[in-house]
Nucleic acid binder design. Structure first.
Length: 497
RNA sequence: GCCCCCAUCGUCUAGUCUGGUCUAGGACACAGGCCUUUCAAGCCUGGUACAUGGGUUCGAAUCCCGUUGGGGGCACCA
């Protein structure tokens, strides 16, 4: 039997990192078994429809490398894969259930239903559910032509068992199940009907979903019984939680895939991280696995049953590890859009700028947690800096006068240097420090602040090369002025006295 | 409130099915140190966990029951 699994998002918003983790599991499961991964769009809620959601969903999946074998855009033998294009099928199936005595028409108004619920709540009832007002009306009491819904006729007694691949059998009391609406008054199916019909018609073999769906699964099982179909194998996977221990949602900050992309996470890092959130190959003490390894090792039975908190810290670390593993050429390619989006370099990149960028890449590679970090780390190269303050230019245990002397000597040295490259800079500047009897680190610190106005910056010599001699000398001169002015002000009172 | 799921370091997890090799292993984060031009990266060291009570057993993180705790679900939403 060929494994067929699906991801069935509804286009009511943008793909969410918690859901995506479940998609990763489905995709890995399909690829591990050489099965099919199907994308189906569940757009049966017209009121919550978001126009470009479908595009964002496909883009996100594609970005993460989660390719699908059947679905919108590429078709397949079981299409269409968009539920709004299958409405006749659902209506037909709903009528079929009425004919079989498994469903009934109901014309209760939303107002009446709300009133019933309110009363039940007021009475402190433990079960808030439809009072089955229309269930026993004669078959012709409600005309197919008047506004109404179709409800599932849930057995009043007995139990329904959900077989879960990971948790075993889960029993539900039928008396506690609501007469679920299958077809809405606008003619659209609800999730419960559509998912069962489509999963069956599309030959879905395994349904892997978040465990927040467990409690509605018995209704689906009942539907399979009503239709006389064999249900798929269910595997409910744990939810992804935010740092506060609640189901991950927009409230927790960055959760849409697009945000992760814009923040500079690598898709391969996010994929690796997601795969290991709630699942582990259980071999060795590794964290970094290639896509191929994950496919080869994926075992659905090793999915952890407890919910997992999404750790941004660990993702950052993993992203940094992936960045460090990139070739310089590849990293450069991925960094360019981030420089461009920050407005630091033009699009397209002028050819004469390439060598500057190439100088920068090895300087920042092991310092980046995300690609976007490169902006703050290297902006001083592309745009003018704020003039550093005198205080920031004077290292601890150094006088202003001495700092100025150092700057002047450095300035003269760099101006006259034959080869303005990293090696020469380091050699000559160390020599200068030795000649002046000061610590090399102190000299470097002054230059760093003077040229970058940062206390923390990429390695100095490479940074200066990237900056270029002209700009470097200009910024040194500016810093000298700052210190001169500072000294003049400081010494003025002394000289009076 | 009712129903359901879950329970190993702060977090992600290995170990649980097939009890002994677990004085519980790894990773992230954290602390200290080394390296060092800042910051990183790298290396070394450290602390912190089997929720709890009862069984079963020669022996339980591992099996059973209760309790507690956490989460989820109870729509003409998916």
């Amino acid at each position: 039997m060929t494994v067929r699994v699906r991801f069935a998002p509804s286009p009511t918003g943008y793909p969410h990192i918690g859901n995506l983790r479940t998609v990763v599991f489905n995709w890995l499961f399909a690829r591990h078994h050489n099965g099919k991964f199907i994308l189906r769009i569940e757009d049966t809620d017209r009121s919550r429809y978001v126009k470009d959601a479908l595009r964002v969903i496909s883009d996100s999946l594609t970005w993460l490398g989660l390719d699908w074998d059947e679905g919108p855009g590429i078709g397949g033998a079981y299409g269409p894969y968009i539920q709004s294009e299958r409405l006749d099928l659902y209506r037909q199936k709903a009528e079929e259930l009425i004919a079989k005595g498994w469903a009934y028409r109901c014309n209760c108004t939303p107002e009446r239903l709300e009133k019933v619920r309110a009363e039940q709540r007021a009475q402190g009832k433990s079960q808030i559910m439809y009072d089955r007002h229309c269930r026993n009306k004669p078959p012709d009491a409600i005309s197919p032509d008047e506004p109404h819904v179709i409800r599932l006729k849930v057995p009043l007694e007995g139990k329904t068992v959900v077989h879960d691949l990971l948790r075993g059998d889960i029993e539900f009391d039928n008396a506690l199940l609501d007469d679920q609406i299958l077809l809405k008054s606008d003619g659209y199916p609800t999730y419960h009907l559509a998912v069962v019909v489509d999963d069956h018609m599309m030959g879905i073999t395994h349904v892997m979903r978040g465990d927040d769906w467990i409690s509605s699964t018995p209704k689906r099982v009942l539907l399979y019984q009503a239709f006389g179909w064999e249900p798929p194998i269910y595997a409910h996977v744990p939810l992804v939680l935010g740092p506060d221990g609640k189901k991950l949602s927009k409230r927790h900050g960055a959760v849409s895939i697009d945000e992760f992309r814009r923040q500079g996470y690598l898709p391969e890092a996010l994929f690796n991280f997601l795969a290991l959130l709630g699942w582990s190959p259980g071999d060795g003490d590794r964290e970094i696995y290639s896509r191929e390894e994950l496919i080869a090792k994926f075992d659905i039975r090793r999915i952890n049953l407890a919910a997992a908190v999404f750790s941004y810290d660990k993702l950052q670390w993993m992203n940094g590890a992936y960045i460090r593993a990139l070739s310089e050429q590849e990293l450069l390619k991925r960094l360019i859009p981030f420089w461009q989006n920050a407005g630091l370099i033009p699009t397209p990149v002028p050819t004469e700028m390439i060598s500057t960028l190439e100088t920068l890449v090895p300087l920042v590679q092991e310092r980046l947690k995300t690609l976007r970090d490169v902006v703050e780390l290297t902006d001083f190269v592309f745009q003018d800096i704020e003039t550093p303050t005198a205080e920031s230019l004077i290292p601890k245990k150094t006088s202003a006068r001495q700092a100025l002397r150092i700057l002047q000597r450095v300035h003269a040295l760099l101006a006259g240097m034959v080869h303005f490259n990293e090696e020469t800079l380091e050699t000559e500047l160390r020599q200068l420090a030795a000649d002046m009897g000061v610590k090399a680190g102190a000299v470097f610190n002054i230059i760093r602040v003077a040229t970058t106005n940062k206390r923390v910056a990429p390695p100095l010599f490479g940074s200066l090369v990237a900056l270029g001699r002209t700009t470097t000398l200009q910024r040194l001169a500016r810093a000298e002025e700052v210190l001169s002015a500072y000294l003049a002000q400081e010494s003025a009172p002394d000289e009076e006295a």
